[in-house]
Amino acid sequence: MKTVLKTFAAALLLGVAAMGVAKADPVKIGVAAEPYPPFASPDASGKWVGWEIDFIDAVCAEEKLECVITPVGWDGIIPALTTKKIDVIAASMSITDERKKTIDFSDKYYNTPTAIIGPKDQKFGATPDDLKGKIIGVQVSTVHAVYAKKHFGATAAEIKEYQTQDEANQDLAAGRVDAVQADSIALGEFLKSDQGKGCCDLKGMVAPDLEVLGPGVGAGIRKEDTELKDKINAGIKAIRANGKYEEISKKYFDFDIYGEDSQSN
């Protein structure tokens, strides 16, 4: 009987020990389920690649977090975070006070200007007067949609919203909208494509509006996940300090993407 009890006790202790070293669940990194080069896009094999993917991979490696890229529809990405379908948003999401009512953000990890593009054969700029009477395409649930409505809504013929940036760009190329507003880097990638360079060019950068565009892009995190936020911030700080951030960025850009005060999504 004593032998049986000893065996049972040993098994119980082993079970408790095993529970103590149980592997933590992976951190699900939410990205928008659409091509958004050069930040995040699926390659031919379905693997997600791009600057933002390399960046978040480096942050996770620095903090020894097991992270898994999890594509989510852009217009549902904040609900996916709050309902714990994902744990972090790394999808070029601008830090804004409006979004902070629902979620928290890491420190800024990049910041680029907002641009207007349009047909090559038309000459206009990026002011409300320039865009008077024009149909402007923007992606739904972005700071660009908010900005366009605020600054161009009174003069533009229409602010037309699309589920993806690619759809807005396609309609511009097809002549169904007169201009598109979005992040300058993302629009630059479109203008370098065969379709983009054949039809369109840069019209200018919009005037700053910190309240709408925010101070930069950050990782979205649930308000209660303070420990995870601290780890993400520590990872960002570390790769900025050890040169990894610059090493990743040089593969994609010939300028400092960390930037100043203007914005992305």
Rank of each mutant, 00 (worst) to 15 (best):
S141R: 05
T142K: 03
H144F: 14
H144S: 14
A145P: 15
V146A: 15
Y147M: 12
A148H: 10
K150M: 13
H151G: 14
H151P: 06
F152M: 14
F152Y: 14
G153P: 12
G153S: 11
T155R: 08
A156R: 04
E158S: 10
E161I: 12
E161H: 12
D166A: 13
E167P: 09
N169F: 15
Q170D: 15
D171P: 15
D171A: 12
G175M: 05
G175Y: 05
G175C: 04
A179M: 05
V180L: 05
S184W: 03
I185Y: 07
L187R: 05
L187H: 11
E189D: 14
L191I: 07
L191F: 06
L191Q: 11
K192F: 11
S193K: 00
S193T: 07
S193H: 01
S193W: 06
D194I: 07
D194Y: 04
Q195R: 08
Q195A: 06
Q195L: 05
G196T: 08
K197E: 08
G198W: 02
G198P: 03
G198C: 02
G198N: 09
K203V: 12
V206L: 08
A207S: 13
A207H: 01
A207T: 07
P208L: 06
P208Q: 05
E211Y: 12
E211I: 08
E211G: 12
L213N: 10
P215V: 05
G216P: 09
G218V: 03
G218N: 01
A219R: 00
A219I: 04
A219K: 04
G220P: 09
I221Q: 00
D230N: 03
K231V: 01
I232L: 02
N233T: 01
N233F: 03
G235D: 02
I236E: 04
I239S: 00
I239V: 06
I239M: 02
A241Q: 01
N242D: 06
N242Y: 01
N242S: 03
K244T: 14
Y245M: 04
E246D: 13
E246L: 01
E246P: 09
E247N: 02
E247K: 01
E247Y: 08
E247R: 02
I248S: 06
S249D: 09
S249A: 15
S249E: 11
K251I: 10
K251R: 07
Y252S: 06
Y252P: 06
F253E: 06
D254L: 10
D254Y: 08
F255H: 10
F255S: 11
F255E: 15
